[in-house]
Design a binder for these strands. Sequence first.
RNA 1: GACUCAGUAGCUCAGCAGGUAGAGCACAUCCCUUUUAAGGAUGGGGUCCUGGGUUCGAAUCCCAGCUGGGUCACCA
Length: 579
Amino acid sequence: MTTLSLSEQETIRRNSLNRLRELGYDPYPAAEYPVNALAAAIKAGYSDELKNFGDVCLAGRMMNQRIMGKASFAELQDSSGRIQLYVNRDELCPGEDKTLYNEVFKKLLDIGDIIGVKGYVFITQMGEISVHVKELTLLNKSLRPLPVVKEKDGVTYDAFTVVEQRYRMRYVDLIVNPQIRDVFVKRALIINTMREIFNENGYLEVETPILQPIPGGAAARPFITHHNALDIPLYLRIANELYLKKLIVGGFDGVYEFGKDFRNEGMDRTHNPEFTVLEIYVAYKDYLWMMKFTEQLLERVALALHGTTRVTLGDHIIDFKAPYPRVTMYEAIKNHTGYDIAGKNEEELRRICDTLNIAITPEMGKGKLIDQIFGEKCEPHFIQPTFIIDYPVEMSPLTKKHRSNPNLTERFELMVFGKELANAYSELNDPLDQRERFEEQLRLSEKGDQEAMYIDHDFLRALEHGMPPTSGMGIGIDRLTMFMTNNLSIQDVLFFPQMKPETRKQEIAFHPEEFSSLGIPGEWIDVLKKLGYTSAAKLREVDKYTRLHQEICGYNKKNKLGLPNPSPEEVKSWLSGQG
RNA sequence: GACUCAGUAGCUCAGCAGGUAGAGCACAUCCCUUUUAAGGAUGGGGUCCUGGGUUCGAAUCCCAGCUGGGUCACCA
């Protein structure tokens, strides 16, 4: 195996690995390691009077090493945080053989190695709670150097910051940037809190298909795949809605699902092709009930995370304290544009859009036009949680018509920080009305709207069996996590955001014997390799031997190799293979 | 998709009227023998993103591409 493609530090670590094996230390031991303490618990609970933690065993990654002769300090980082280790040569190695300290600990261990230690807790002269190490075990040798991030008095030095690297190598990001871990701990807490509330109410957590023959429940462009055995196209779901409503038809009073949806659309700082959504459907409720439920849900999530309903987000403080103001869509548009769009037809709406300088396209129907006005002129204004209610029927093909106005639907979206956070309605359960709405979608599709919904005949059949009056609601979990953790980019709340595939430089096989058989001396083979002549075939592509001669002599000089230069004739003979 | 900024050592970055690639940390060797981001000394380490072009000479200037960030557009 050639190690030429490795960096110096990687080579050194591999050499250390081999040396450890020679000395009889298994760099990758199989046995369980009996951890009985965490760094954070020790730091929080140690008392110098009690001398507790007298026999601890902990494991983690060594993040720093300060060797001072026969006594050294190191930092151990486990899942809870960091703690200092004190390692003394004669205590680690009570007998004559000091190899474990002198060679293994001081030389063969590196930053990033995973070790286990046993010992007792004490406080150093500098006043730092530390573990006095009596036993040290290597649990995993790390072969790549870790970015070394240092921190003092809240100032971070040499941070690992390159965003691309952080997303592509999230494992490294998590090791060296501990605050990143918090975001994901909070993300889990958000989901757990919501689940707790749903379960308290007796709603059932369910799972519905991700692979769907018809991608329904939303207006979006799907990913398409193919099932070989059935020989049919299948779509990755864009929403859970229709399947969950079929379960309400089936007799459940409340069902919810945390699931991934997939949309084949643009990617930016607020959109990832796959994202997590919570959808919940509750029978015998309406959208008014759902508004109350939603505001209580969010209030409780904020309290669980922050102990307060007030959450910092960018330059704002968002207060999730219920209740939230309710503004109808028409009011919102009237307030922010001056136009009352109630009762306006498509042509009139187009003129309003033109006046307001809103970009529109011919295939946009009435619903899309109104959505466009709202999105452009109103949405950004709703920073504090606000329910926008009563959407035009054209925008909401799965929503029940408003009880007091047939042109509107019983729908709300919750706006926070100028963005949609939740979307809910009194679900349409009139199967004949639903059929007409689907047919209207079909007309939009024929007009060129690529996001118009497909007709789902099984869903219609289910509705024909009868669905109780139901309210449903969806929340984007990624977006909620962004809002609750003060991150403005979705990539910061996903462990592995979608990225373009990394192009790997391919490792080139190198066969020195190809060159020696041409009569090329060993010292020049290395030079040729460095210059990019990685095979005899590449060497044959050289048209002028004089050029190659100059190249290798130049390399010799530049790198001060001190080799006696070959004559041009010798180089010529290499190329002709006559050497 | 458009515009814009960036890509140099393991990490963070400097270098750019075109003239031998630099610093700090990390790494190695030695000294020190209880340190607090950093004890001291010495040293090794680079396809300056890739490919073309201009030039005697390109990390630097020009063109194209790749990757990423930002803004905008598109998008429940």
